[in-house]
Write a protein that binds this DNA or RNA. Structure first.
Length: 572
DNA sequence: GCCGTTTTCGGCCCGACTGTTTTCAGTCG
């Protein structure tokens, strides 16, 4: 993806500028652009329409650099910078506790250009004696190298919530603790997270920090202060905790939830009104020493005093939510309780673990009105796709289950293959028998962007295909999204009345947040499915809903908020 | 390098912890 390529270059530029001690605000401008670009899958479409500078954070200069990359595949300014500071040094910055100043020191004094050399020198004691480096510093660097070597890959939100829950439950059990909440990117429900942030309200911070650093899940303690500590969990994830007084919990939660850019925007707007926002509250900017706190107890109080709507954590990415909140124009986001059913669950007819009955029982316990048992189709042999004969048996079972149910309906679904030419692997005669047909690509990913787009568009045009499952095919940690002409595909979905799936499975989350927004702008409709292969997976619905919220979707944008009667009408 | 309900120039969010220092710089979020 071009946006990621450019983001990586801008990120390197920011780091090189840091090492060169360049203007901090210029560095921040590049860093901000990196975050913006990471979420901008259709950068080429912006460039083609000459709309790059309409993106907040992209000005004339960055526009020209983006255009330069798109047309030539390189950025001259970056090529020049690389001559001044060898790229290897940037690797040193990935070691926790080594920042630009330290990296420059090691390079200037000892010509260290990679982590392996840094480790060697640290072990041999050759770092000692450099300005500001003593034994403790070396110790921290070696520990940082350990973390670096273990890899810095991001973890999926389901795993992260699991680890977070273990810390939270130990902390909640303390009588000194008034409140505990997960904050940071995990609270914002980012698709993946790098670390876990936990906020605690207590008047006895020391005690809380002692317990936090001694949690069963802790493997190593990086930093332990009176109100702030940082540990490595046994699962290899960094967990940060901060303790604040109960009175400032709202202010701290806002600050600790981020995103950084959201906080900066909030604080900038506050400053224009002569208000200061920090993790303790909102304060008037005066010369007086004693400052009265205007708001601090809840996040709602803070947003209110700043004269804007409350902003849900999932929206706090500085992608327009602050401006919308100031104008009272935030959408009413979809909630988990709006979901009335799940149309993508696999039974043991194909590669699922559970029987239809077991799945139905679990779905009913969730308060759903319907569930579609959507097993794989005949050509996906690895997943025991169903033959025509299998379908007849399965249909019979569903009919008999439905006869015994009241107020709940099992739908006859399928997840069919879109082959390399865009055809579906059951005939129309068979397809029309299903209540819902979900189409997906599970093979032949290596085609060009145009070919893949054509395949999906052709599937959309099939009158029997109701839903496109996991539209980009990405699997976190295993496979990148395939490239598509997104606007074209989304427009085709709209024109053919095909529903786009938001797949809730934690290693998919596909569509992801930024593509959901793009698809909505193109008029598409959505369904949030779990792609369950076991009844426990039905719980993943909350992650799909979170993606929908991050994509600014309302209940009206999502078809499985409809009653059984209405969702059946939502088909083609 | 970006940006404008004070502004097209002169600002740009704010604080905790650590290790090395005797008052602070570097790192991190």
């Amino acid at each position: 993806m071009k946006n990621l390529e450019i983001a990586n270059i801008f990120s390197s530029i920011a780091q090189i500028l840091e090492i060169k001690s360049d203007n901090l605000f210029r560095i921040r401008a590049y860093e901000r652009a990196v975050e913006i670009l990471q979420d901008l899958d259709n950068i080429e479409e912006y460039a083609a329409a000459d709309k790059l500078t309409e993106i907040p954070g992209i000005g004339k200069d960055l526009e020209s650099k983006i255009k330069e990359y798109l047309s030539t595949g390189r950025i001259g300014y970056y090529e020049d910078l690389k001559k001044e500071v060898p790229l290897g040094i940037l690797e040193l910055l990935k070691v926790p506790s080594v920042g630009p100043k330290t990296a420059k020191l090691f390079y200037d004094e000892l010509n260290i250009k990679d982590v392996a050399t840094l480790e060697k020198f640290a072990l041999e004691g050759k770092l000692l004696g450099l300005e500001g480096v003593k034994e403790k510093t070396v110790e921290n660097i070696l520990r940082g190298i350990d973390i670096f070597k273990r890899g810095s890959e991001r973890i999926d939100i389901a795993t992260a919530w699991d680890i977070a829950a273990r810390f939270v439950s130990e902390l909640r059990a303390l009588k000194e603790v008034k409140r505990v909440e997960v904050a940071g990117s995990l609270r914002r429900m980012k698709e993946t997270v790098k670390d876990i942030d936990i906020l605690v309200a207590s008047n006895k911070p020391q005690k809380v920090m002692d317990v936090f650093c001694g949690c069963a899940e802790v493997k190593d303690v990086f930093a332990k202060g009176i109100t702030k500590s940082s540990v490595l969990s046994k699962g290899g994830v960094q967990v940060d905790a901060r303790v604040v007084k109960p009175d400032s919990f709202g202010a701290a939660l806002l600050y600790f939830t981020g995103s950084k850019n959201h906080n900066v925007k909030i604080r900038t707007i506050a400053a224009r009104r002569n208000l200061k926002v920090n993790e303790y509250g909102v304060f008037p900017v005066t010369r007086k020493k004693s400052q009265e706190c205007l708001a601090s107890k809840t996040e709602e109080d803070l947003y209110k005093i700043l004269k804007m709507q409350y902003i849900a954590p999932e929206l706090r990415e500085d992608t327009g939510e602050v401006e919308a909140a100031l104008k009272n124009k935030l959408p009413k986001l979809i909630e988990l309780k709006d979901i009335k059913g799940d149309l993508h669950a696999h039974s043991n007819y194909s590669d699922g673990k559970n029987t239809i009955r077991e799945i139905v029982d679990a779905a009913r316990k969730k308060g759903y009105e319907y569930i579609a048992i959507s097993d794989h189709s005949q050509s996906l042999k690895v997943a025991r796709g169903l033959s025509i004969a299998d379908l007849k048996i399965k249909k019979k079972e569903i009919d008999s289950v439905n006869k015994r149910l009241k107020g709940f309906r099992v739908l006859f679904g399928t997840e069919v293959e879109i082959d390399s030419a865009g055809n579906i692997d059951y005939d129309d005669e068979i397809l029309k028998e299903f209540d819902f047909v979900i189409a997906a690509i599970h093979s032949g990913f290596k085609q060009s962007k145009e070919q893949l787009s054509r395949r999906i568009i052709k599937a959309c045009r099939n009158k029997n295909v109701d839903i496109i499952a996991h539209p980009t095919g990405r699997l976190w940690g295993a496979r990148d999204s395939y490239e598509l002409n997104f606007e074209e595909v989304f427009k085709a979905a709209k024109d053919t009345n095909t529903i786009l799936e938001i797949n809730s499975f934690p290693n998919r989350l596909d569509l992801g947040d930024s593509l959901i927004r793009l698809a909505r702008q193109n008029g598409a409709r959505f369904i949030i499915n779990t792609d369950s292969h076991a009844v426990a997976h039905l719980d993943f619905m909350k992650f799909g809903v979170a993606m929908a919220r991050r994509g600014w979707l309302t209940k009206q944008d999502v078809v499985n908020t409809l009653s059984l009667k209405d969702i059946l009408k939502a088909r083609k």
